[in-house]
């Protein structure tokens, strides 16, 4: 399988000059196309920082990040904005949707920025909202949707533009069990159907069990990398 993301000796150190905190410490990983990966670990283990780095939202202190063979850690900010728009889908823990846009407009938003044809956007957005079970909420604003529904719209938006991979930072953290399982079912289904690499951080045991690959971070380092039923101590 093709490698979509590759990091080599990735580092992120905060307060470098005063009291250095190594949030991400020498992580070298590869993510293949279509993988469904959970990044787990206790609070402060570096999960979010790692996702921010590979998502091009933050700059590493050291090491390299390759997306589809392209080194992104040396890119200028303007290049990164464009790179994110074309290649990466995001689902955050909260504040995921643009409050003034309807569900359909939110799903279309990235495609709109990508200047896709209107007909294609309309079709794809409707299709994606149908797939996440929200065909009756096309014109609802975020404040008219429940937390679980909002997360499903965010997943639909992240996948609608067919990015190279989707990063989800604790997508189920604020959801009840039923909504969390529902969201996972959708993510798993779309991951298989669309063959899009999906990486999400979580410390939710319900989610971890569903992942095809589980990477455990402790103090910014990879302590375990388990694929399928086999678990590797690193």
């Amino acid at each position: 399988m093709k490698t979509v993301i590759k990091t080599t000796n990735l580092q992120k150190i905060y307060n470098n000059s005063v009291a250095p905190v190594k949030a991400v410490n020498d992580i070298s990983l590869e993510f293949k196309e279509g993988e469904f990966t959970a990044i787990v670990g206790p609070s402060g283990s570096g999960k979010t920082t790692f996702l921010n780095l590979i998502g091009g939202l933050d700059k590493p202190t050291g090491g390299e990040i390759f997306i589809d063979g392209t080194e992104i850690s040396t890119m200028k900010e303007s290049e990164l904005f464009d790179f994110r728009l074309r290649n990466i889908g995001f689902v955050f823990q909260s504040y995921n949707l643009i409050p003034v846009l309807t569900a359909k407009e939110n799903v279309s938003f990235i495609m709109l920025l990508q200047k896709r044809p209107k007909a294609e956007m309309e079709k794809r957005a409707t299709e994606m909202l149908e797939q996440v079970g929200l065909s009756d909420k096309l014109n609802s604003r975020p404040n008219q949707l429940s937390g679980g529904q909002q997360q499903r719209v965010a997943v639909a938006r992240a996948l609608a533009s067919k990015p190279k991979f989707v990063l989800a930072d604790e997508p189920t953290a604020n959801l009840d069990t039923e909504s969390a399982f529902n969201l996972l079912d959708i993510m798993e289904k779309l991951n298989k159907e669309e063959n899009i690499t999906l990486i999400f951080s979580t410390h939710d045991q319900r989610v971890i069990e569903r992942a095809g690959r589980v990477i455990t971070l402790v103090d910014g380092r990879v302590s375990e990398d388990e694929v399928g039923s086999s678990r590797f101590e690193v």
Partner: peptide
Amino acid sequence: RKEFALLFSLGMKRAQ
């Protein structure tokens, strides 16, 4: 501020 962070994450340019 959080909304701006979301828009930037999604790929919306600062100028936009």
